[in-house]
């Protein structure tokens, strides 16, 4: 299948990689079919692109790269809806809010997208635990100071 992405231009992908979100993203329920576009170029980020609306795309990242000790408690309802029963069944993606300033980039660790990797069904879930907010810094200020290429 081919789509015209606003950001990446024409993109080809396999039909089997289509991600079905029957409820859509929270608050944006119109779009139900997405595809995760990943390229070495912009790893570890991915584009979460709506198939039927080229202008609807988000940047996502594996939440464990942001928070290595990421803890997530999911409701029985979410697990059942997505037919997820073990850690080998799913993938999590956190939504990123970008900014020109790296220090201002935030990640929503409270409501990740849960994808069943076998069925490709997905849902944006809300964690039951209160460890994270919707705007966690992508890179903690302390780490940023150490790893920044430097303005020497």
């Amino acid at each position: 299948m081919k789509i015209e992405s606003k950001l990446l231009g024409r993109v080809e992908f396999d039909e089997s990689s289509i991600i079905q979100m029957s409820e859509g993203l929270i608050g944006i329920s119109g779009q139900k079919r997405f595809v995760l576009l990943e390229k070495e170029d912009f790893a570890p980020f991915g584009y979460f692109q709506a198939i039927d609306d080229p202008s609807l795309s988000l940047v996502v990242i594996n939440p464990f790269l942001v928070e290595p000790e990421y803890q997530f408690y999911l409701s029985d309802e979410d697990l059942r809806t997505l037919e997820v029963s073990s850690a080998n069944d799913f993938q999590l993606l956190a939504v990123v809010v970008f900014s020109a300033e790296v220090a201002d980039i935030t990640v929503n660790l409270k409501a990740p997208i849960l994808i069943n990797i076998h069925t490709r069904k997905a849902k944006q879930v809300i964690l039951l635990n209160n460890d994270y907010g919707v705007s966690e810094p992508l890179i903690k200020p302390s780490t940023l100071a150490q790893t920044s290429p430097g303005k020497s």
Binding site: I26, G27, D41, L56, V59, V96, F98, N108
Partner: peptide
Amino acid sequence: VYLEIQRKNMEAIRSISSIDLKGVGKLVK
């Protein structure tokens, strides 16, 4: 909680016009 997540989703969609994914990707790595 719902409204906050909805707002963040909208913000995330709007925010991608300002990006240098490659640069930030390197930092995260």
